[in-house]
Write a protein that binds this DNA or RNA. Sequence first.
DNA 1: TCTTTCATTCCGAAAAATGATAATATCATG
DNA 2: CATGATATTATCATTTTTCGGAATGAAAGA
Lengths: 255, 255
Amino acid sequence: MTKRIQKDGPLDRAFAIVRHVADQRKAVSAAEIAKALSLPLPTAHRLIGNLEDRGLLQKALGTKRYVVGNQLVTLSATVIGAAFRTARRHAVLRAVAGEIGEQCEIGVVRDNVVAYVDSVRVSEPQGLQFNPGEAAPLHCTSTGKIYMSRLPERTRANLCRALPLTRYTDTTIVDVHGLMKTLEDTRQKGWAKTNEEYVKGVVGCAVPILSPDRELIACLGVSVPVARVSFVELDRFIAPLQKAAALLSETILQD
Amino acid sequence: MTKRIQKDGPLDRAFAIVRHVADQRKAVSAAEIAKALSLPLPTAHRLIGNLEDRGLLQKALGTKRYVVGNQLVTLSATVIGAAFRTARRHAVLRAVAGEIGEQCEIGVVRDNVVAYVDSVRVSEPQGLQFNPGEAAPLHCTSTGKIYMSRLPERTRANLCRALPLTRYTDTTIVDVHGLMKTLEDTRQKGWAKTNEEYVKGVVGCAVPILSPDRELIACLGVSVPVARVSFVELDRFIAPLQKAAALLSETILQD
DNA sequence: TCTTTCATTCCGAAAAATGATAATATCATG
DNA sequence: CATGATATTATCATTTTTCGGAATGAAAGA
């Protein structure tokens, strides 16, 4: 009676389709989905239609090919947030915040904006307060830089041009070329720093939290008043952050 | 035409449960889920069991309360990644909304109705809220006018006669002849305005988003309370909108 | 201990998914 | 621009699930 392993109900098919669409690098047609999942063509259309009606998939503009839908993206962001707010992971966050003595936060990117899903402040509200639920721009946050740095080069360049590179301080990077260069640097190092680019007087850095197959799930970062830690001194936070990030990615798929 | 937006099939229930669990700050019991979603208790258990079997939900360590499961977390990470790769559309929309300081939306025509696929509101909900997924009539929206204006003349006339030209306000165009004249004007200018024709107190305008071969893909529009911007002043939005529309058609189709 | 609430099992009726067939629309290309 | 190839939509009898009331076992709280 080991039929438990591979069922194939409607729910399985629905998730298989969603998974397949999300896995793909580009938009996929209904026929491609049907072939990839060995579904009869009419059945595939019906299932995809169901998902589309619910906003879990949507057609790429001007085509009949499918991409992940708004509802699914919203749900996914919530899920990631919930996954990091469990007791154990919050404890990891608190531990690293205590170790480096500064406010730590976990952020994901959604709708081209950094959304913070969890944070621990170690003392009084001092520097930047990233309360869960708040959002910040991509180009002037460490988390945003990490996300962008992991895109394929072409997509990255397009995104840089599409983003409104609003100037928040006089160190905000507002030119596409400078941003691209910073991102290339970020890509190579695997982590990012921010030098008072969003809020005057606040510097920060972040490292990626990766899944076992090295997909970016979220970022772990720290924000600190420059009066206490200089931009250069930030480097000493990287190692503890990376250790905590590794611990987080380990626990994220267990317990 | 009461198209049932809110069905309640197994899939809806499954996602409602997942959504509810992800929304919660703490682990939830099956009974709580059942109560929150008004499900019979045995049904809730069965559905939750299904989700648990698939790893979409899992029991929090040692208890019988549920949290989001591994499969769901990995899927969510993939979804966020996929959405981010293809999110330049939203980035452009956000940029133009920020530039002109009003709510912008992208709409397409489907089944003789304007469906809004994406929107950015720049501040508080003020004027018209075109939430993605909502639909509006053709004859009293800028997007609808653009769509109709690009049809062959014969088809256009037929459509005008076939449409129910419902009167929503006292400026709504309800006679075929007046509509045809407006559409001819729209066709020549290449963009459209709406003067409180759908919602009293809300004016708007839109420009087409064209494919490389100049086919209409969608429309980019803005809606604003007339108290803030008069019908005449709308003209100053056209240029920025056209620039953004050009950027959209350039980047949208190359994923 | 007792009581209440929650979790689980069972099962016939009801609803939904399924996928063959067929009709239609769309696209590529000669 | 016609034409065949392919993709999409529609229809429908059949099969498979789901649904949730009633009953029962398990656990938590007083």
